[in-house]
């Protein structure tokens, strides 16, 4: 069994090969995991890969694709938008023949909403954006710059903005400002259902939590 898989999605100059972590034994139940966005993606990766191991043991295949422009993706983050990510996740769904979905946090803004499944602690795009802007204001203040969230937002809407090391283009900023989690029939999983640990996506450094991964896999596999 391969632990990584590739899939293709449209790039600026034709189809691009993207990576996914994968546990694929050709089984009936196949879970597409849509990761959290931006720095939350890194912080939750170990949780999700451990969840995939548990799903594998429970008899489910699972796939964790990179969002274009993130992680191992060969694409440029500066050219991405929520719309492009939605299209990419739809492509991944079709190519991996996913039968259910687990969207994590901001992943609920770009996941294939027609699949049954779960969303873990979905978050509004505006909340993610505000968090990134706030961090930028604080780091600016440390450097003696007088920044405001509104001022940065105006700049971002017009010219784009670098936040947490990511180059957000105006389309990404606009997309985040209005995006709401799009879950319909999917069940929302709350952090409190995962055994009481702290949220790994708010933690300053990436961490892991085996008990949370086990609880998450149990809910997804049920």
């Amino acid at each position: 069994m391969e632990f990584c898989a590739t899939w293709t999605c449209p790039g600026p100059d034709g189809p691009i090969h993207e990576h996914a972590a994968a546990f694929d034994r050709g089984r009936e139940r196949r879970v597409l995991i849509v990761p959290a966005l931006f720095e939350e993606q890194n912080r939750t990766r170990r949780l999700l890969v451990e969840t995939m191991r548990r799903l594998d043991a429970a008899g489910l295949d699972s796939f964790l694709p990179d969002l274009p422009g993130c992680n191992e993706s060969p694409q440029d983050f500066a050219h991405q938008s929520l719309h492009a990510w939605r299209r990419a996740m739809a492509d991944a769904t079709a190519q991996f023949a996913a039968t259910q979905v687990l969207a994590v946090r901001g992943g609920a803004l770009v996941f294939p909403a027609h699949l049954p499944g779960h969303v873990l602690e979905p978050v509004k795009g505006a909340s993610l954006l505000r968090h990134l802007l706030r961090a930028r204001v604080i780091s600016g203040r440390e450097a003696g710059e007088q920044l405001t969230i509104e001022g940065l937002l105006d700049q971002g809407r017009e010219h784009g903005l670098i936040l947490a090391g990511y180059r957000f283009n105006p389309a990404m900023i606009a997309g985040l400002e209005g995006a709401l989690p799009a879950h319909e029939g999917q069940r929302t999983i709350l952090l409190s259902e995962l055994g009481g640990g702290a949220a790994l996506w708010t933690r300053a450094e990436p961490g892991e939590d085996a008990a949370q991964a086990a609880a998450l896999a149990r809910i997804v596999a049920a």
């Binding site: 720095e39 968090h131 990134l132 706030r134 961090a135 604080i138 780091s139 947490a164 708010t202 300053a204």
Partner: peptide, 14 residues
């Protein structure tokens, strides 16, 4: 060391 600007933002949000 863990308390960089991103962590401060996380702290305030929490």
């Amino acid at each position: 060391p863990e308390l960089d600007s991103m962590a401060v933002a996380g702290l305030l949000t929490e």
